[in-house]
Amino acid sequence: MESGIQKSNKEYFEMLVKQNMKQAYFTALGFVGSHDAALDLSQEAFIRAYKNFSKFDKKRKFFTWYYKILKNLCLNFIRDKTHKRENHFLEFDNETLRSDNLSEKIENSELISIMEQAIEGLDGDEREIIILREFEGHSYKEISEILNIPIGTVMSKLFYARKKLGEKLRSKV
């Protein structure tokens, strides 16, 4: 006998969680910059989604609906100044890591740290669009659906977010 959660609902929801957990975790990580907080917030958002599952229109993409819950939780977390920020949420991809040159490695780790600080310095909206496009690799159309804005606005927001990121990077170098 299944305890707590009904079986059919549980199996369907489990499938949705497993399909979306990586995307959920990485989105939260981009917002809050800490592994523990990203894990906790992305799981909490799934729990809230489960509690409100009757409101979910099954014709729509689950992540688009779930994203709103996750975003609210992440923004509340960021607003709460009592949380200790970790600031280690980026790494180089495998190609870049292959370098054997020590000074290059040091330069790379400095660049990571500068980029993390620059991203943390962006507003929630700017950070959001950078995460979705540059780190999560969503298409413009997907971002437009998730944020419920036209594709042209997605492109323009991305342009200004990158521009601000450039300014932040310049001020830190």
């Binding site: 990580l29 280690h88 980026l90 790494e91 180089f92 995460i131 540059e134 780190f135 990158r162 450039g166």
Partner: peptide, 12 residues
């Protein structure tokens, strides 16, 4: 340039 730098990085 910014895009190139971002492309070299990923979330941990």
């Amino acid at each position: 340039k910014i895009k190139e730098v971002l492309n070299k990085m990923k979330l941990k």
